[in-house]
């Protein structure tokens, strides 16, 4: 084991932390927005919207992220029609392909988290809120939403950790985030173990940080309960 190499790769890989965080945060944010749309479609009585939302979640959760990344990057680029359309502005850039794939992936999982959060709230609560003179929107915002969020926090913090780990996969489409840099160092040093240990330490630290922060948030919300 070459400890010097671990240290040197650690410093090099750290330079990709910014790129990794950019992709992770952007995808989580966009994914959260998208998931709200998916949940709303799921909760409507419109059969088309409802079944679209169901099949979207089914397909995304049933296939590996790697397939989704390759599909968006190489699969769609195969068609001249797509390459000549306005979508190509986004799909041309590996960075946006990566963000798009991660966004779609996390939105499917997040929508299920939110849905089960909403389902866990006792139905009578909304009715009593209305009986107390709130309108439907007020009841949703003041009574249902805070509870749904609190219910969802542990599962969502788990999803964030999964996304941090998943972001390493975008290195396969030429994005130079942390894992991309690690692969590049390996192609020069031929020492995968040392380099991946260095990368592993950074991911582990990042995930530990997320766990600690969310433990705090969870505590705060439980006290007010």
């Amino acid at each position: 084991m070459n400890f010097n190499l671990i240290y040197e790769s650690f410093l090099d890989i750290l330079k990709g932390l910014g790129a990794s965080l950019e992709i992770i945060i952007l995808s989580l944010f966009l994914g959260l927005l998208l998931s709200l749309g998916i949940v709303m479609m799921r909760l409507t009585k419109n059969i088309v919207l409802n079944s679209f939302s169901r099949s979207f979640v089914f397909v995304i959760r049933g296939t590996p992220l790697l397939v989704q990344i390759y599909f968006i990057y190489y699969g769609l680029a195969q068609f001249t029609a797509i390459r000549e359309s306005f979508i190509w502005i986004v799909l041309k850039e590996p960075f946006w392909c990566g963000v798009l794939a991660l966004t779609i992936n996390t939105s499917a999982y997040t929508s299920e988290i939110i849905r089960s959060g909403l389902n866990s709230i006792i139905k009578g609560q909304a009715e009593s809120a209305v009986a107390f003179g709130m309108n439907k929107f007020q009841a949703f915002k003041r009574i249902l939403l805070p509870q749904a969020i609190r219910q969802s926090i542990p599962a969502y913090s788990n999803e964030i950790i999964l996304m941090i780990k998943a972001s390493s996969l975008v290195s396969v489409i030429t994005i130079m985030e942390m894992t991309g840099i690690a692969r590049k160092i390996i192609s020069k040093t031929f020492a995968p173990i040392e380099v991946f240990i260095a990368a592993g330490i950074i991911y582990l630290a990042l995930n530990y940080l997320v766990t600690v922060i969310f433990k705090k948030i969870e505590k705060k919300y439980t006290i007010s309960y």
Partner: peptide, 18 residues
């Protein structure tokens, strides 16, 4: 510089114009 893990991937992206 963009690096690809296989020549096939590079060819696909050259064809696509990336």
């Amino acid at each position: 510089l963009s690096t690809y893990s296989t020549q096939d991937d590079l060819n696909l992206d050259l064809g696509a114009g990336r």
